[in-house]
Design a protein around this nucleic acid. Structure first.
Length: 877
RNA sequence: GGGCGGCUAGCUCAGCUGGUUAGAGCACCUCGUUUACACCGAGGGGGUCGGGGGUUCGAAUCCCUCGCCGCCCA
């Protein structure tokens, strides 16, 4: 006998081990494959609710397709996550005695990171297992694995030789905290309160001054021009003159350029080509000198005159003070403006002129755009394709070099004269140089560079492996919209370039779990929720079911703990249904054919099962995860438990042995079906019940995880049974409703009479009398005229009546009937209004018109019956 | 400034290829310990579907417009 509730804590680890040991996680069997690569979580990470959602959905798909008999590969792994990981270890060093990575040196530092990875890197993978993820762990990869590193070097070298990777000196987003370049995508534009400081620059010829406005006063140290709009009447006469830059004393020109916005600030703008993307362009157009005034730490360098060596923000303050003291500060204006911040460091990013490695993304983007236009890769929901196109069609060169130590070191070697040799190995580079002494480029690659290769590098590329042949392209990628640019688009570019095919046929974009303020959750912000606590409290199935049910396409999820509790209760409900079936000896019967069932309730539940199975299958095929979950919930709770098992009880307690045997077999069969259909979403409780229910009856062939997905004949639905049970449910519900509203004690058993019953109704009443008596708590149910002093209700063409003389509460009964009559009156008004409209009758489809006629007739009949009863009551009172 | 999404019951959401009395879960109210389950059962209250206009016989659903809220990109 089953316990009263499922104990997830005890069962989950045991079941997971059994699955893994069974080999079910590795692809096997069929020619038809289904493959997915996991979005590799950061190796530093621990499972947050976003991972839980993403991996639950992947696992639902993996288990579903596995049960459908496909060879499923769900390839797991982790990402070395350059900045994030380096940050964690640097923080650790700082805590352990204020050592910086530079104190330690590159080699020792990298060794420390590996050490850390060995110790703590397995956390997230263990957590994925707790969730039930059925990944093929035998194929687990890490982006810094030797094999993946080979792939990275090969890709880099090939792209370089094709001219698609190149070195360039231009402004980059420089993160002064990590002292590295970052890509545009890693920059977060934050709107902040700031100021426009209006400075007066004196004309060199002494004829006056020009006032410029700036939000970053310290950059004036690097000014090489002042720009005004060519049509700006205020300044036209000054174009071509020069000003003397305060503090620096440098003579710089006043130039005309459209970039100067007459509406903004004073209309005249200082130009600092080395420290502003727009100014850089202006500088190019006018051949202005580019003066770099900052170092890698964001401190003013020797080009900054008196401020050399001081921090950028300290300098800002001092320069403003000096301007005020010296009288060239004209005014201060408050403003809100957008300031770039590093998404990891959170510090203000500086545009900085450096040499970096770039990928020619615009070229690689073209096939990636085409592949989605052609439908070779489809986004689900389709709408995200717009986002994808928007970005790829306006793509900028991708800066891939990072001045970090943790990552793939760039396979480029330099000779003493500054010539570069890009090869996969040092020896090849030396050979290419003609035997010179070379030193390797110090930089590492952007983490996303190796992630971009993930769909094929994990399958063994550049080797021509069996896995690549069988599983590339993958079938579906499940990921969040926040990394469509970072990851999805770049995988498309690299996959098409190196594999000559898309990396995945379908991209399912899952919702993003946000925090209470609507902000994206991230480790660096520290606003993550802990799914493992929820698993501890409610079990993995409850969390999984919740996330699946809430995963409406492309929306945000605001998780309420109450919801998880509710779905835990759902599991308990199922558990107790199994317990009930066990108590009533509903043992599975070998060779039982539901198609041959004779009892109406069994033919009915069979049809319900067919519909539920079809809907769950459709939903999972379409990634409509919430539909699948809701269908399961309703079928299991509201159909199977609320009605089928209740209808089965009188059979079990009756003496029709044939009916009893058939119903027991059907109960067990349906329960098995439920376990299969629910397994992808709630694998633990279903596997546990699968095992427990095998204690009696025929032996199981194996674990539920490897069971075949149900494929039921559509012909198993039975409209006659549906109509009959539908009537039965309506009758029972009506009786219960009357009883409750009339405050009839639950223990009181009443006789029911049905008048004006047609042949079908009479037959049903006879056939199901037993059920009706039990479920509606009646003494008898017979055909006949309503006795005096009874409460009427409408059931189809018939009128039911419960004699309530002993309990009658006239006021309650009048209220009940009045409400019913009012509802019917409203409906009659609505429907007859429609039918009175000649346009409606003429233009609406015939079946809609007919439907309304029937509805009207039924409502009128029902109303007149109830009104008569109401009049009788009013006559009495 | 451009793009995307949202605004439906107290809360979280579904419904949006036009025709149902607009649904679910939670919360709330009443009753109930009937031998699967109180992590339960039965019954009930609660919404002019953000505002306005339009198309249509008919609009939560299609179109326009306005208003908030959120996100992404400049």
């Amino acid at each position: 006998m089953l316990e009263k509730t499922f104990d997830p804590a005890a069962a989950e680890p045991r079941l997971y081990k059994a699955w893994e040991a069974s080999g079910a996680f590795s692809p096997s069997g069929a020619d038809k494959t289904f493959s997915m690569v996991i979005p590799p979580p950061n190796v530093t990470g621990s499972l947050h609710i976003g991972h839980a959602l993403n991996n639950t959905l992947q696992d639902v798909l993996a288990r579903f397709h596995r049960m459908k008999g496909e060879a499923v590969l769900w390839l797991p792994g982790t990402d070395h996550a350059g900045i994030a990981t380096q940050m964690v270890v640097e923080r650790q060093l700082a805590a352990a005695g204020n050592i910086s990575r530079r104190d330690l040196g590159r080699e020792d530092f990298v060794a420390r990171v590996w050490e850390w990875k060995a110790q703590s890197g397995g956390t997230i993978v263990r957590q994925l297992r707790r969730l039930g993820s059925s990944c093929d762990w035998s194929r687990e990869r890490f982006t810094l694995d030797e094999g993946l590193s080979v792939a990275v070097r090969k890709v880099f070298v090939q792209l370089y030789k094709e001219g698609l990777i190149y070195r360039d000196k231009r402004l980059v987003n420089w993160d002064p905290h990590f002292q590295t370049a970052i890509s545009d995508l890693e920059v977060e534009q934050r709107e902040v309160d700031g100021h426009y400081w209006h400075f007066a620059y004196p004309l060199t010829d002494g004829s006056g001054e020009i006032v410029i406005a700036t939000t970053r006063p310290e950059t004036m140290l690097g000014d090489t021009a002042v720009a005004v709009h060519p049509d700006d009447e205020r300044y036209k006469h000054l174009i071509g003159k020069t000003v003397t830059l305060p503090i620096m004393g440098r003579e710089i020109p006043i130039i005309a350029d459209d970039y100067a916005d007459p509406e903004k600030g004073s209309g005249a703008v200082k130009i600092t080509p080395a420290h502003d993307f727009n100014d850089f362009q202006v500088g190019k157009r006018h051949n202005l000198p580019v003066i770099n005034i900052m170092d890698a730490f964001g401190k003013i360098n020797e080009e900054g005159g008196p401020y050399a060596g001081s921090d950028r923000f300290a300098s800002r303050k001092q320069i403003v003070e000096r301007a005020e003291n010296e009288g060239w500060l004209r005014s201060i204006e408050k403003t809100r403006h957008v300031v770039p911040h590093g998404d990891r460091s959170g510090v203000v990013v500086e545009p900085w002129l450096t040499d970096q490695w770039y990928v020619d993304a615009a070229t690689l983007a073209q096939p990636a755009i085409k592949a989605v236009e052609d439908g070779r890769t489809v986004f689900e929901p389709r709408n995200w394709e717009k986002t994808y196109f928007e970005w790829l069609r306006n793509i900028e060169p991708w800066c891939i070099s990072r001045q970090l130590w943790w990552g793939h070191r760039i396979p480029a070697w330099w000779d003493e004269d500054g010539n570069v040799y890009v090869e996969e190995t040092q020896s090849a580079a030396v050979a290419a140089s003609g035997g010179k002494a070379l030193t390797q480029d110090e930089d590492v690659l952007d983490t996303w560079f190796s992630s971009a290769l993930w769909p094929f590098s994990t399958m063994g590329w550049p080797e021509e492996t069996e896995d690549l042949k069988r599983f590339y392209p993958s079938h579906t990628l499940v990921t969040g919209f926040d990394i469509i640019f970072f990851w999805v688009a770049r995988m498309m570019m690299m996959g098409l370039h190196f594999m000559d095919d898309v990396p995945f046929r379908r991209v399912f974009i899952n919702a993003l779990v946000r925090d209470a303020t609507g902000a994206k959750m991230s480790k660096s912000k520290g606003n993550v929720m802990d799914p493992l606590e929820l698993v501890d409290r409610y079990g993995a199935d409850a969390l999984r079911f919740t996330l699946t049910a809430m995963s409406g396409q492309g929306r945000d999820i605001k998780l309420q703990e109450q919801r998880i509790e509710g779905y835990r209760n759902f599991g308990t409900k199922l558990w107790n249904a199994a317990r009930f079936s066990q108590m009533n000896h509903c043992t599975r019967v070998d060779g039982f054919d539901p198609g041959a069932a004779r009892e109406t309730i069994n033919r009915w539940i069979r049809g319900e099962a067919v519909r539920a199975a079809a809907e769950v299958t459709r939903a999972l095929d379409a990634c409509a995860f919430d539909d699948a979950a809701n269908t399961l919930y309703r079928f299991i709770w509201n159909v199977y438990c609320d009605w089928y098992l209740e209808l089965a009880k009188p059979v079990f307690n009756g003496d029709d042995e044939a009916a009893k045997a058939e119903t027991r077999a059907m109960t067990a069969w349906t329960l098995d079906l439920i376990l299969k259909l629910l397994h992808p979403v709630s694998p633990f409780i279903t596997e546990e019940l699968w095992e427990k229910l095998a204690e009696t009856g025929p032996t199981r062939k194996g674990l539920l995880i490897s069971e075949a997905w149900p494929d039921l004949p559509a012909g198993w639905t039975d409209p006659a049974a549906d109509a009959e049970i539908g009537w039965l449910i309506a009758l029972v519900t009506e009786v219960r409703s009357v009883r409750a509203e009339m405050n009839i004690p639950p223990a009181a058993k009443l006789p029911l009479t049905l008048s004006n019953a047609g042949d079908d109704t009479r037959a049903r009443l006879t056939r199901h009398r037993n059920l009706i008596l039990t479920l509606a708590r009646l003494e008898s149910a017979t055909e006949g005229e309503a006795p005096a002093g009874s409460a009427p209700f409408v059931i189809g063409e018939a009128t039911g009546a419960l004699p309530i003389a002993g309990y009658i509460d006239l006021a309650a009964e009048r209220a009940r009937l009045s409400k019913e009559v009012a509802n019917l009156t409203a409906e009659i008004a609505r429907t007859s209004g429609k039918l009175a409209n000649p346009d409606f009758v003429a233009r609406a489809p015939e079946e809609v018109v007919e439907e309304n006629r029937e509805k009207l007739a039924e409502a009128e009949a029902a109303k007149s019956r109830l009104e008569a009863a109401l009049k009788r009551i009013e006559a009495v009172s």
